[in-house]
Simulated assay, not measured.
Amino acid sequence: MNIWLNEQAYTTIDACDLKALITELSLPDNAVAVAINGDIVPRHQWQDTPLEEGLQIAVFQAIAGG
């Protein structure tokens, strides 16, 4: 499936939902935030958020500091 990941074309290998995509990317799920088409998706909804062709997904890593 082809999606846009941080404004770059990306083809998922096996991901069918947002949680699976985060796992596929080897990202620590407790240290990232995700938006789909500009809307933040709460972490507890990742497994229930299916991926669809052409989605625009932005992944942000948490940064400590102020």
Rank of each mutant, 00 (worst) to 15 (best):
E24Y: 02
Q45L: 12
K19G: 03
I22R: 01
G65F: 09
G38K: 07
D14Y: 10
I57P: 04
C16W: 00
I57F: 08
G38L: 09
L21M: 08
T49L: 00
Y10C: 06
H44Y: 13
A9G: 03
H44I: 10
D39R: 13
E24V: 09
V59F: 11
Y10L: 08
F60N: 06
Q45F: 09
R43T: 11
I40G: 01
L25P: 03
L51V: 11
A33F: 08
V41H: 13
A58Y: 02
Q45I: 00
D17G: 00
I3D: 05
H44Q: 14
D48A: 14
L18T: 06
G54Y: 04
N6M: 08
I13V: 11
Q45G: 00
A64F: 06
E53S: 10
K19N: 11
L5V: 00
I22A: 13
D39W: 00
R43N: 05
A35H: 01
A33Q: 00
A20M: 13
A9Y: 01
G66H: 12
Q56E: 14
E7N: 15
G38D: 07
T11K: 10
L55C: 08
I3L: 14
D48V: 02
L5G: 07
T12H: 03
A31N: 08
D29P: 10
A64P: 04
W4V: 03
L25Q: 12
E52I: 01
E52V: 04
